[in-house]
Computed example of a mutant assay.
Amino acid sequence: MIKVSILYPHRQNGRFDSEYYTTRHMPLAARLFGAALRGWSVDIGINAGPPDTPPPYVAAGHFLFDTADAFYAAFQPHAQTLLDDIPNYTDGGNGTILISEIKVSV
């Protein structure tokens, strides 16, 4: 199984609408990805460890797929729709993508 993570860096005075992201954008992506999607989640950054420090990432969206090829097949037909939605929740661009293999899950 693989995890596709989209990491949105914290930016001083940057805009990120976590309500929109969690209730509109991510469910939209989940619907578009269909049966290939095995699960999804959202992390909202709190801090970098010490109290009152900004988090390195304001948010991270995660999608689970069986393989990277399954992700690409599900994403590519809907890429433009999802990219066009980005300005609705952030002024910071489309984030950094990390595709990782899940080795351990509890």
Rank of each mutant, 00 (worst) to 15 (best):
V106D: 13
G92E: 05
D66L: 09
G95S: 07
S105Q: 08
I46G: 04
G39Y: 09
S100D: 08
G93C: 01
D43M: 14
Q12I: 07
P50F: 10
T67I: 09
T23Q: 14
N88G: 06
I102D: 09
P54K: 07
D66R: 10
E101I: 12
A73F: 09
P50W: 07
D69T: 05
A59W: 00
A79P: 00
P50L: 11
A29C: 08
Q80E: 13
S41A: 15
D85A: 01
K103D: 09
H25W: 14
M26P: 08
A73R: 14
I44Q: 10
F63M: 11
P56L: 06
T67K: 10
G34K: 04
A35R: 13
A30S: 11
G45L: 01
R38P: 05
G49C: 03
D66Y: 07
A60N: 12
T22R: 12
A35Y: 03
T23H: 14
V42F: 11
F65M: 10
R31L: 12
D66G: 14
T67G: 08
T23N: 13
A30Q: 12
H78W: 06
L37K: 06
S41L: 13
D84K: 00
A60F: 03
P54G: 02
K103H: 13
T67P: 07
E101R: 15
L7H: 10
I44A: 02
M1G: 03
T90C: 02
Y89P: 01
S41C: 11
N13L: 02
P50V: 07
D91T: 05
P50I: 04
G61H: 04
A48D: 12
F33Q: 02
R31E: 15
T96V: 15
D43C: 13
D91C: 06
I86C: 00
F63W: 10
F16S: 00
L64V: 13
H78Y: 09
P77E: 07
I99R: 05
P27D: 08
D66F: 10
N88F: 10
